[in-house]
Design a binder for these strands. Structure first.
Lengths: 346, 346
DNA sequence: CTTTGTAATGTAAAGGTTTACATTAAAAAT
DNA sequence: ATTTTTAATGTAAACCTTTACATTACAAAG
């Protein structure tokens, strides 16, 4: 069907070695010979067979990207960043979603073996054992927001703890003390980190975290919506809702509005991640800014450092800090208790 | 590094052919032999080399997905649908973004050659010539929302014309006659189709489309925002804004709110695509519902029909119709001219 | 004119599979 | 006991490259 290197060699009247040489411009080839071969390649529309090449070179020019889910803007931003970085090196991306299912992780990882030069795994949900058992030893691996501190792989973690702390402090500074949080599931490392940061900030201000204000969502808009409907039923309603990602915050806002309440005057809402759409919401959403796109870029660049042997030796653990994107969905309150506290503190 | 089929054969005391047979359970192998080999495979953690397999089988178990962009929820939904369908067949997805650049399209397509068993291309921007010149003849291709009516390839088109017509009629029924549209760029086939539908609906009601109410955006939130800021400066302000995708509608809403206007009481806004977040906005966004996720699924299934030879012969051209998702961002108005018209019509 | 050195090109092995065909072993038929 | 049939397994070619090593041709040096 397709012409191969032999066809080219025959038509150009040279050996396949010479054709291969001009293909990879590895060694000197007389320029007239080169021209001739190039002309034939063009004429025959010859493209080297990547399987054959991959077989002998042990190089695929592809990077595997394994994500837990493909839902929402967060993951699309990761892909966008990774694709950008990968294209800059003339590499390509093999994307797969694991849906947090260990069988699917296994299948995806097996598929990638031999098909990619490196793997980027984002798997906040699955515990390390399953993951580690299936991670190939033969290619570089970068773990993105996984249950970390694994000595064998490079890891990148966003500072969920610090980000949540900072946001919580911000809310406390605004006078909120009854803050409900919407978490992302018990086994999710990112959710855990954020919860840890939240609680820690409260304790630092001598507020005992109230478990009954910690609601379990699953990082989707729907879960934010439904959970907040419950929250609003509480007799002692919180003055602020801290959703552990923006999708849940968006769902929360809808639920609050449906109840006829105003944001931020009746209740403050903030999110986490700062997905691109956050600043366009009304009110624009206050959120913890995670450089999502850059996370994809970083992971890819790290992986290239390994591939190109620019980085050797022990694995590195990078920590990506967050910033606060303060917008219009949170407001200062002056409750009685708040005034009292200020009085006490002053 | 990795063990290969020869290692397995040696350790199991059989020939590589037998190992291959149990791997592909192609022919009968004595069950004790099979057990033995399976055990060795397990012990050696042997995984067949996909490059070698792909080389001889001419099959890669991967589908290429070429998108114009990876921005926003629209494309992430396409990827999600495609990945889902592909995983159902134990296939995998190679994703690439072309950024509407013909050089990048060329590069991506060249890369995919030999690496994928089929290609799905979404390229509403680039004209068919460049695309066709680079599309491989050797694997099935599905064109998704491309400048269509190409006899050589299967195509899937969403009914942008019909969707825009329907939405326009809806707006007209609500009494809007001064409707501004936010288009998605001149060379974009989807934008063109939607514009055609919009104009056609107007003409059917004897309204001459007013070019000065057609504003060029580029399908991003920012472009919606900035364009609508201009729109609001108009002395005879439109009563409705029809954004040709939801991202621009989101930007539009922000611009309108910043001007202190209320949606939908002061001005109606609607979008196109009905991305998942649309129903969670406030007010929830009226939009033309495109089954985005299903588009990805359909494209993949079509491609599998070709791969598995379930479908032969002439290429098919599928047309995906849209529906209206009527929510709360558009409102009936009763202007003077509107009342007059109703009087005339009755 | 012969030898040496060098630039250009060619030869063949290797990479890891699948599979058509060949072989062997054992059971069934004669 | 010999032949035929069948089931199980083995052999080797093919898939398409890259590259170490071999060869050739020719110019420079002796």
């Amino acid at each position: 069907m397709h012409s191969n290197i032999i066809d080219v060699a025959k038509k150009a009247g040279v050996s396949i070695a010479t054709v291969s040489r001009v293909l990879n411009d590895s060694e000197k080839v007389k320029s007239e010979t080169r021209e001739k071969i190039l002309a034939v390649i063009d004429e025959l529309k010859y493209v080297p067979n990547p399987a054959a090449r991959g077989l002998i070179m042990r190089r695929t020019e592809a990077i595997g990207l394994l994500l837990p889910d493909l839902h929402g803007e967060f993951f699309s931003e990761i892909i966008r960043g990774a694709d950008e970085a990968v294209q800059a090196q003339s590499y390509h991306l093999i994307v797969s979603s694991s849906h947090n299912d260990s069988k699917e992780i296994e299948a995806a990882l097996r598929f990638m073996r031999g098909r990619v030069d490196a793997i980027i795994v984002m798997s906040p949900q699955v515990d390390s054992e399953i993951l580690l058992a299936n991670l190939p030893k033969s290619v570089p691996v970068v773990l993105l927001n996984c249950r970390t501190s694994n000595p064998h792989f490079d890891t990148i973690m966003t500072d969920g703890y610090g980000g949540a702390r900072e946001m919580t402090n911000y809310l406390l500074d605004l006078g909120h003390t009854r803050i409900a949080v919407l978490t992302g599931g018990e086994n999710n490392i990112e959710s855990q980190e954020r919860l840890r940061g939240f609680r820690s900030a409260l304790r630092e201000r001598d507020i005992t975290p109230n478990r009954s204000l910690e609601f379990a969502g699953n990082f989707t808009e729907v879960s934010g919506y439904e959970t907040v409907r419950e929250v609003l039923l509480l007799k002692d309603r919180p003055t602020a809702i801290f959703a552990f990602n923006d999708s849940m915050a968006i769902g929360a806002i809808k639920a609050i509005r449906e109840e006829g309440l105003k944001i931020p005057s009746d209740i403050s809402v903030c999110g986490f991640d700062d997905i691109p759409v956050a600043k366009f919401l009304s009110p624009s959403l206050t959120s913890v800014c995670v450089p999502i796109h850059d996370l994809g870029v970083m992971a890819v660049n790290r992986v290239f450092d390994r591939i190109k042997k620019r980085t050797k030796g022990a694995s590195a653990h990078m920590f990506v800090s967050t910033t606060l994107s303060i917008r219009n969905s949170c407001k200062k309150i002056n409750t009685m208790s708040n005034l009292e506290k200020e009085g006490n503190a002053a």
